[in-house]
Design a protein around this nucleic acid. Sequence first.
DNA 1: TTTGAAATTACAACTGT
DNA 2: ACAGTTGTAATTTCAAA
Lengths: 151, 151
Amino acid sequence: MAIENLDDTDRALVALLQQDAGQAYAALGRAVGLSTAAAHERVRKLRERGVLRRTTVEVDPKALGLGVLAFVMVDSSAWMGDSAGAFAAIPEIEEAHVIAGAASVLVKVRTPTTEQLQDVLRRLYAIEGVNGTQATVVLESFFERPPSPAL
Amino acid sequence: MAIENLDDTDRALVALLQQDAGQAYAALGRAVGLSTAAAHERVRKLRERGVLRRTTVEVDPKALGLGVLAFVMVDSSAWMGDSAGAFAAIPEIEEAHVIAGAASVLVKVRTPTTEQLQDVLRRLYAIEGVNGTQATVVLESFFERPPSPAL
DNA sequence: TTTGAAATTACAACTGT
DNA sequence: ACAGTTGTAATTTCAAA
């Protein structure tokens, strides 16, 4: 699952789909020099192998009423390695990563208001082992984009 | 563009599309109690209004050879408000946010190796006004998911 | 909302490597 | 066996009534 063998065609297909997952297989095939069915089969296999996960839509967070974005460093006294579930149970948390360094978990949080951000912090404190948080509020997002495939 | 008026049906459609943007309009309509064409029209308008942006595929970063994830706090002496382009020009940077607090920009970086992470830091230093970076390497990602619509 | 034509997807059977 | 090609049936999209 980790080390996958992707050729140039696979990588091109991934890049094209990241840009626009709605386009027809015929268009994908044309772009990489393959027939419709061959492009289809390649993509099916990429999905099967787990290289491609779900197809989603990017949303404008502000339009959903999510105007506040913050990153929170979560300090803990205990080993947080299997607390993934506790973080996932807080829907406002978009990402949670175990990090090297001072704090032990870094989370990305989106809420409608700063009051609700505070409420998320309260719920973070309720997680077993958590003994401190340090929130950094985002003033402006320059951009957020999908990972670009390594050369 | 910022304050949008979404009813419950719109929000349900957004949530369904985030989960699986590939499903047919007939299925979407059934799920929210609408005809195929009505669901289609709703989604078309959500796109038009910019609530829904592009449809993409989620990829497994490891499968693309992107095994290293890090968050970097970028300190600067000058106003970084219009340096978005300079950050966007570094493809390894997935997100860049202007933040309140000590450092002035927070970036999310994905690279194949830590050597290449170091190279990204070098390129960050080359940006006008940048005078310091502080990288935090991710040991394990619990999860990364799309923003869940506010209640 | 329903209808229907055009486009697209999904699945064959087949071919060459 | 494997990956690709063409052909075709079943779905789906999407505009018009």
